[in-house]
Computed example of a mutant assay.
Amino acid sequence: MSWSDAKSIIYNSIWKQNQGVVAILGMCPVLVMSSNIINGVSLGLATSVVMLISGAAIAAIREFVPNELRAPIFILIIAALVTMVDLLMNSYVHDLYVVLGIFIPLITTNCIVLARAEAYASKNGVAASALDGFMMGLGLTMVLAILGAMRELVGKGTLLSGIDLVFGASAKSWIIHVVPAEYNYQFLLAILPPGAFIGLGFLIAGKQALDRRAEAKAKLAAKQIQLKEQAA
Rank of each mutant, 00 (worst) to 15 (best):
I58F: 10
I58H: 00
I58C: 04
A59C: 11
A59L: 11
A59R: 06
A60H: 13
A60R: 09
A60P: 09
A60F: 12
A60S: 14
I61P: 15
I61T: 15
R62L: 04
R62W: 05
E63C: 05
F64Y: 15
F64A: 15
F64S: 15
F64T: 08
F64N: 15
V65C: 02
V65H: 03
V65F: 00
V65K: 01
P66L: 08
N67K: 11
N67L: 09
E68K: 02
E68I: 12
L69R: 12
L69S: 15
L69N: 13
L69C: 10
L69H: 12
R70H: 12
R70L: 10
R70V: 08
R70Q: 06
A71M: 07
A71G: 10
A71R: 13
A71F: 11
P72K: 01
P72I: 00
P72G: 04
I73Q: 12
I73G: 03
I73E: 11
F74R: 00
F74L: 12
F74M: 03
F74H: 13
I75W: 04
I75D: 00
I75Y: 03
I75E: 00
L76H: 11
L76A: 11
L76I: 01
L76R: 08
I77Q: 02
I77C: 06
I77W: 00
I77N: 09
I78E: 06
I78T: 15
I78A: 04
I78K: 07
I78M: 01
A79V: 03
A79W: 07
A79D: 08
A80H: 02
A80I: 06
L81M: 07
L81R: 06
L81V: 08
V82N: 02
V82I: 03
T83V: 12
T83I: 06
T83A: 14
M84D: 10
M84Y: 10
V85L: 10
V85C: 08
V85M: 11
D86Y: 09
D86E: 10
D86A: 13
D86T: 13
L87R: 15
L87P: 01
L87F: 13
L87V: 06
L88E: 00
L88G: 01
M89T: 00
M89F: 13
M89D: 02
M89H: 04
M89L: 14
M89E: 00
M89Q: 04
N90L: 03
N90M: 02
S91C: 14
S91T: 05
S91R: 13
Y92D: 04
Y92M: 07
Y92W: 14
V93D: 12
V93E: 05
V93N: 10
V93R: 06
H94S: 09
H94D: 08
H94E: 05
H94R: 14
H94G: 07
D95M: 05
D95N: 12
L96V: 03
L96Y: 02
L96R: 07
Y97T: 03
Y97C: 10
Y97H: 08
Y97M: 03
Y97S: 15
Y97W: 14
V98S: 08
V98A: 12
V99F: 13
V99S: 04
L100W: 05
L100N: 02
L100E: 04
L100R: 02
G101V: 02
G101L: 01
G101T: 13
G101D: 05
G101N: 09
I102P: 01
I102W: 11
I102C: 00
I102K: 15
I102V: 14
F103P: 10
I104W: 01
I104R: 03
I104S: 04
I104L: 03
I104M: 02
I104N: 12
I104G: 12
